[in-house]
């Protein structure tokens, strides 16, 4: 499986990408929404997952999600907002725009894996042995 990580912070891309890679994903990266759309355009097959930050220069995550949802050939991409924004109204807006999930930073690796498991993108992850 492949995942696209969209975040203007290189450190966050490394953290999110690291969890995804350790869960078996091949990871693509982009630094903002515009660049992420360009990455998607060049892929022969869209990735199964995109983890998207909200606040980014050039194009923010909400706009990116809205654009992806408009394209029928990208309908199969599961979209997860991964952001420091934790207000209820923001979460409602992201889900209304077409995000499937929403994860608030900071988070632990297991929190992300649990979200993926819930979305059917991972085998379930027991929280403790």
């Amino acid at each position: 499986m492949r995942a696209l990580v969209v975040d203007d912070s290189r450190a966050m891309r490394r953290i999110v990408g690291g969890v995804l890679a350790s869960s078996g994903f091949e990871v693509l990266q982009a630094g903002d929404g515009r660049e992420a759309l360009d990455v998607l355009e060049t892929q022969p097959e869209p990735p199964q997952l995109a983890c998207v930050d909200w606040n980014m220069p050039v194009m923010d995550g909400l706009t990116f999600i809205t654009r992806v949802r408009r394209r029928s050939e990208w309908r199969g991409i599961t979209l997860m907002m991964v952001t420091t924004e934790s207000e209820q109204e923001r979460i409602v807006r992201a889900l209304a725009a077409g995000a499937h999930e929403y994860l608030t930073k900071p988070f632990e690796a297991d929190d992300l894996r649990q979200k993926l498991a819930f979305l059917g993108l991972l085998p379930d992850v027991p929280v403790e042995a």
Partner: peptide, 11 residues
Amino acid sequence: VNRGLPASLLV
């Protein structure tokens, strides 16, 4: 709430 609670159920 980050631990396993789907966003749709949270809101």
